[in-house]
């Protein structure tokens, strides 16, 4: 299997329903004369999973026979949730996690102050109802918020747009 194919199949340590490729943190895989260089990018500045990802990539590639592996980090351009693949969004939803909406490029100028909780409608990943409310903007990991469905009454997690 090509080094790229191996790297693409490594799972995210915190969202193991997604591969690093689905999540969009896998930026590049280069294979030159048996040496593999993988480039990844952190989701958040303090993402504690980055070192896990590095170790998992090295391990998977080593098992596949690639012994000379270098995993590099790039910060630029900064990751956004728009980098999660269509496949990734679907997998999140199937797994009971509300996927982020596409946000597109940010407009220039000072970032507007937001004094209201987000009003956008988030569909419940279990029953599909749009009658859901935010319980907490900060969830179990930096990238998730906690919501509840008013129809099926189940709480669920949502990947925040970043």
């Amino acid at each position: 299997m090509s080094a790229r194919r191996v790297a693409e199949q490594v799972l995210d340590p915190e969202l193991p329903v997604l591969t690093l490729a689905d999540l969009g943190v896998l930026r590049d895989v280069q294979e030159v004369d048996g040496k593999v260089t993988v480039t990844i990018t952190p989701t958040y500045s303090g993402c504690p999973a980055l070192d896990e990802m590095r170790a998992d990539l090295k391990e998977s590639l080593t098992e596949a026979g690639y012994t000379d592996v270098d995993v590099r980090t790039v910060l630029h351009p900064a990751w956004t949730t728009d980098w999660i693949s269509e496949d990734g969004l679907r997998k999140l939803s199937d797994h009971g996690i509300a996927p982020p909406q596409r946000i597109g490029p940010r407009t220039v100028g000072p970032i507007p102050l937001n004094l209201e909780p987000p009003t956008r409608r988030v569909a419940c990943p279990r029953c599909g109802s749009h009658r859901t409310t935010e319980l907490s903007r900060f969830g179990s990991t930096a990238c998730k918020a906690l919501r509840r469905c008013e129809d099926c009454r189940e709480p669920f997690e949502q990947i925040k747009e970043l």
Binding site: H76, A78, L115, L162
Partner: peptide, 24 residues
């Protein structure tokens, strides 16, 4: 400085929701 600009670009998004959280 390539590190300062890249670290700032990441930080901006985080600081924006820190500020919103405090303001709310």
């Amino acid at each position: 400085d390539p590190v300062l600009s890249a670290a700032a670009a990441k930080g901006v998004k985080e600081l924006a929701y820190h500020r919103d959280h405090a303001a709310q």
